[in-house]
Structure formats: C-alpha cells, structure tokens
Design a protein around this nucleic acid. Sequence first.
DNA 1: ATTATACCTGTAAACGCTTCCATTTCTCAA
DNA 2: TTGAGAAATGGAAGCGTTTACAGGTATAAT
Lengths: 330, 330
Amino acid sequence: MSTIDEVAFLAKVSVATVSRVINNNTNVSPETKERVLNAIARLKYQPNAMGALLRKEHTGMILILLHSVDNPFFSPIVQGIEYFAQSNGMNVLICTTYGDKNRENHYLDLLKSHFVDGLLLITNTLTCEELNELNRNYPVVQVVEYLPDCDASYFSIDFYQAAFSLVERLIEKGHHDIAFIHAGLADIVSTKKKYQAYCDALKKHNLEPIIEDISEHAFGYESGRTMTRELLKEHPSITAFFATSDLMACGILDELRDQGFKVPQDKSIISFDNTIFSTLVQPNLTSVDVNGFQLGYQSLEYLKKRINDKKFTDKLEVFLPYVIHERESS
Amino acid sequence: MSTIDEVAFLAKVSVATVSRVINNNTNVSPETKERVLNAIARLKYQPNAMGALLRKEHTGMILILLHSVDNPFFSPIVQGIEYFAQSNGMNVLICTTYGDKNRENHYLDLLKSHFVDGLLLITNTLTCEELNELNRNYPVVQVVEYLPDCDASYFSIDFYQAAFSLVERLIEKGHHDIAFIHAGLADIVSTKKKYQAYCDALKKHNLEPIIEDISEHAFGYESGRTMTRELLKEHPSITAFFATSDLMACGILDELRDQGFKVPQDKSIISFDNTIFSTLVQPNLTSVDVNGFQLGYQSLEYLKKRINDKKFTDKLEVFLPYVIHERESS
DNA sequence: ATTATACCTGTAAACGCTTCCATTTCTCAA
DNA sequence: TTGAGAAATGGAAGCGTTTACAGGTATAAT
C-alpha cells in the first residue's frame, strides 16, 4: 500500500498538493495535476479512508436498522433510501437485528463511535427513553414503524385511516363477521392503529370484533394459517378476514382453501403491504401499498438535513399518502 | 464529543492507560480502572472509531455486494454471513448494485480505501480480468455465482448435477417435450450450467431441447409468463417446464392456469431456489435448495482466513451439497 | 517601476487513537 | 540486604489524511 507521501515524493510536490488533486480542489495548475495523477497511477495509490475520515466531520455513511432482509415489504423502502444516498454521495449500511437487542446495541455503537453519520430505524427494540436519549445526541429518523410519543421524527402512513376505510368497504359489501388476523398487538404501532381502526369501524356499524387474544405469535404465513383455523372453529360465521400483512393473508388463503372455502365467494380477505405476494397467489389480494420508496427517500432526505445542521432538531411527524389496491380477494 | 485526552485528564492518568481500559487490556490496576471507568461515564465518552481504526490493520467490516435485497433467494445467504460475522466480531455492509457498474465501482472503493477488510461477491458485473486484479490485491470470495476461469475463490453448488438429475426424473416420468425457461444464458454461470445439464440430459435420451432464444430478458415472474406463452404457441406438445428460478416458475404456473391447464396433471414444473414462493403457490413447486445459509457462513469463514493471512491465497472451488424438494408441481 | 491581486504551492498542525518503549514501583527469593 | 522479575503507568511516536496559514511568483493596473 502506497501512501500520499510516496505519491508526493514521486510527483515532486507536497502532500497538500496531492490531497488537493485527490479532492478535485481548484488552485492546482494543470501541469502539476498531471504529474500527480501520473504518480497516483504509477503507484496504484488509493487514499486510505480512515486517514481522511479522521479529519472530516462526517463519514457519509448511514446506518439502516431493520429486522431482516427477507421481508419484501422492506425492499422498496431500502431502495428509496439507496436512491437518495446514491444521488447524494452517501453510503448505506444495512444491518439486520432479528429483533435481538444485543445485535441492535452492537450496531448502535457504529453510530456512537461516529462510524456512521446517522440512523434510519425501520424496526427497533428500543424503549422510548432509549430512543429519546439516542435522538438527543445523534441524527435519527424512524421509518414506517415508530414510537408515537417519542421525540424522534418519523415518516409513515396513516394506518388508522387506511384500515378504517378498508373495513368500512367490507361492511358496505354486507360483511358482518370480520376477523382480525395479526401478529401480536403489543408493540408495533402499525398493528395497533390497524386494530383500533378495525374496532372503531365495527363499532360505528354496531358490529363485534372477532379476534384471537394471542400472547406471542410469529409474523408470517404459518401464523396466518393457524389463527384462521382457530378462529373458524369458534366463529364459523366469519365471512371476511383483515390481515395485517399480506404474507399472513397468504396463510389465511391456504387455510381457507384446505377447508374447502372459495375466496371471494365464501370468504373475503383484505391485507396490508402490497408486496409481490399480493399478486402471486390466487386470487390476488386486496392490499394497502404504503409507497415504501417515497418513505425511504424522504426519510433519508430529512436525516441528511439533520446531519448537516445540528441545530435543526424539530420533530417531524410525516404521513405520506398510501394506495389501496382492490383486487379479487374482496 | 469528549476525547480520550479529556478522560485521561479527568481520571488523572495518561491516555495510554485509558486506551488500555477501553480495550480491556490487562496490566491496569483495579483502582485505576475504576477511576477511568468513572471518568468515561461522567463524560459520556465514546471512543471515535476513525481514530482507532487508523492505527489498526483491520476495520472488521465486510462488504457484501449483491444485486438487490428483494430476492428472497439471497436471504439465507446473507443470514449465514451475518451469523458468522456476529460470532466473530465482524460487521457486514450490504450493498446493492442493481447491476449498475457505477454503483459497483463506488462500493468497490470502500474495499480499495480499506474501509472494509474484504469482499463477498454474491452478484457482480465484473469481467474476469477486473476480478483477478481485485483478487490479487484484496480478499475476495464469490458466493453462489462465480466466474469459472477466474482466480477468485468461490462457494457454490453443483448446478449441473442438480439440473441433470431433475431433468432425468422428468424423463423417467415419461416427459418428452421439456421446455427451458430462463432469464438469458449469457452471463450467469448457474444458468449456463443448468442449460448445459438440461441439453445433455435430453441428448442422452435422444430428446430435443425446447428453448426460446432471447437476447435480453428480465428475471422474474413476468418473464416466466411471457416465455411460457411464446413457447406454447410454437410447441403445444410441451408437457414439462424447467424454470431457472422459482419466481419464474410462478409466472409459468399462472400462465398455464390462465390457459386452462392443470399442474401437474397436464403440465409439470421444476425449478430452483426453493424460496418461500415454492410453497406459497398452488400447487407447491418442486425446487432445488442451495442451502444458502451454509454457503454464506462458509464463504465468510474462508474470507476471514484470507484477511488474517495475506499469504493464504489458494484458490478454493467449493461445492456444497444441495437438496431437491420434490413437490406437487412435478 | 510599483503595487495590488490572483493563483499556486508548501509547511506543519491537527484529527483521536494505539502501542512500543522506558520508567517506576512492588514482590519475593536468595 | 540485594537483585531479579513482574506489574503498572506514562511519554511519545506514529497511523494517513486535510487544511489553515504563509510564502512565492506571475499578471495586471496604476
């Protein structure tokens, strides 16, 4: 590995001049620049990032914390983030926590040690206090999921409104017994909002919620299947299912098929996320698209502002528009 | 931000001692350690990573280059990598190129500037020469896909053998007209091997390949659909489809359904990847599982050896075992 | 000819940490 | 009592950059 000194020596200039050439600084004569460039090429010189970054205020790295990469729901969000990053000379560090607090803390050290300039929290296991503490000292933005009463800004959609209108549509079509299929109500704000909207919409029309009180259920397909099975045992009158994710909706669908029901003739399904799963299964699923790309893009856009202006710490609570895709399942 | 000097001053020790405490070095008396720890706590001191890393040989960061995160096929690979990383105090930088050479080069600079210690190439657009050059100077390992005649090591599976035995099973079941649905044969080694095996297996039984000569086709669902449509027009006698990915197989499935065919009664499908898609659609797909987790895990394990021992540069060509999941589609 | 200005270049001081080496102090065996 | 070895600590030299500052030269204006 050659260093800037060797380049300077070979080009017969000072290291300052080499640095100027590397950073496209003006005030370097064409001939000198030429000489330096030649020396760089001859030595195959690559500036050492650590040396440079030690002197600079920022590293240009952003940390994304999410549960795992295997949920296609996150894909457009990450794409939006990356698109903005790409256009703004930033790099993105995607780190998966699998809901493990150790891993999360491990990665948060990257923020605290100034390895990264800011944090995009797509999912987290932090308490409100922890997040506040973090937000006080470092640029942090929550994406999609958020802690409602926390000081940290977030970009999300109005899950309540989306869920409410979805349920009302079902009711208008004559459904009375609508089940709520979810992955635990405890922590996640999106699920909470959906549940609240579901209850409110039913109450408005004097209907009763049908829901299983689960303690700890997994996300995903299997979970949708088992909950459907359980609920149908107790409430055979159910004609519609509200799934909090379309992967769960896939589980519902398969369980219904196995039990001999037709969708949407016998039972309807509505869901969230509008991932590729929605259109991969038969029938296609009615699903809410949260416009993850925009969510990701704008989150980083705002985070960048926070990074560049320490004084700019206003809490932002942004709800972007969503789109309901009505398909065959309802 | 407080620095190590301030901590040293407050604790009335030298910076050397503070550094020893931070790095859990021995040879620090309990009382001194206590004092330093107190000072650290009082100042909320966080060591600056850049300062430390400038002095150290390695950063503990690994770069993963892949096309995009929205293919569930990559998920277990990444998980395997992360699992090893986690257990070995390394960090993983997941970067998506979307097949864009600019983005790729941008990220490769992280390697060249020693921001990361090594590179795991899951997909790439590099030529063999470029990769050789890279491999000569930095620790690089290819995962799943690889350039066969390159100097860089790789961990993959024997796609040829897997494909060959799949096709033979179809032939044994009486299929004669077997179509090959792919996303372009040009670059990707896995597709090339599959195609070669497909042809060889057919030839062995005196059968003719059925394939569309495409120039530039997209991966994925849509592509599977259109190719199926085209091929069936010309070759209505086709009774089985070999899909190079299970997402394409999903496209085939839907196209067949739309045309009124039943799977597997009228037509059979076999595919690769064994992602969640394989079991999400009806009927479930016969698919080859490449054991991505092991592939990822062992790749990083080997990469780590290369990082720690510059002299260790033997080319490794590793084929791990795969599993064929026979399901309803064939 | 003189001065002001713009442009180019170099010197050297950071940036925040680790670690080699030297020094001091302490413990224990001879 | 002495000396050797171990343990604890500090001094200071880097690691490879960037950049403030200063100096030097050429050009243009007076």
